[in-house]
């Protein structure tokens, strides 16, 4: 048994002090230690995007990241995308426009899209499509996902320009 090391994580604004074997992967720690099961495991190999979380606001594949290396960074999972009881416009649009079916890919898409629209308000469909091309969805054919992110871009753009 490799010995455990202290790991201090800041997730969705909360501090967690953990003792973990140094090789523990961030995805496992989020899901198993912190019970943040919204982040999904689709492949464990960096090929599906289901495990995407935001590290200092940037989308990262948590299945490819050691938890220890996430120390000192702000982590955001799908659970932290919107304040309790509210929905982010991207989440709202996913619901209204049918962008989630089985939902397993959805958290990964949501966090990726939220980060992208933050930096690219008013992005075009083609730009959105490129930004989401690291996320795999087998149910929707992406059509309604793009519809939803485009619609959210329209809601967000005027607000951010002001």
């Amino acid at each position: 048994m490799p010995k455990k090391v202290p790991v201090r994580l800041r997730v969705n604004g909360e501090e967690h002090e953990l003792h973990l074997p140094p090789q523990r992967i961030l995805l496992d720690v989020l899901r198993e230690e912190l019970n943040l099961t919204g982040t999904k495991r689709g492949c464990d190999l960096g090929t599906c995007g289901c495990c995407t979380v935001l590290v200092d606001g940037e989308p990262r594949l948590s299945c490819l990241m050691l938890a220890k290396l996430a120390e000192g960074h702000q982590l955001t999972t799908v659970e932290g995308i919107s304040p309790a009881g509210a929905l982010h416009p991207v989440q709202r649009a996913f619901i209204d426009l049918g962008a989630t079916q089985c939902g397993f890919c959805t958290p990964g898409f949501i966090v990726t899209a939220v980060a992208f629209l933050r930096d690219h308000p008013g992005a075009t469909r083609d730009e959105i499509s490129r930004a989401l091309s690291g996320n795999l969805c087998r149910c929707t054919g992406y059509v309604k996902i793009l519809d939803a992110v485009e619609a959210a871009a329209r809601t967000l753009a005027p607000a951010q320009e002001r």
Binding site: L36, T37, G38, T39, T77, V78, E79, I81, S82, L87, Q91, F94, I95, G98, T100, G103, T106, P107, I110
Partner: peptide, 8 residues
């Protein structure tokens, strides 16, 4: 069930 899915 969409609201549950988009919030994880």
């Amino acid at each position: 069930d969409a609201a549950l899915k988009v919030t994880g």
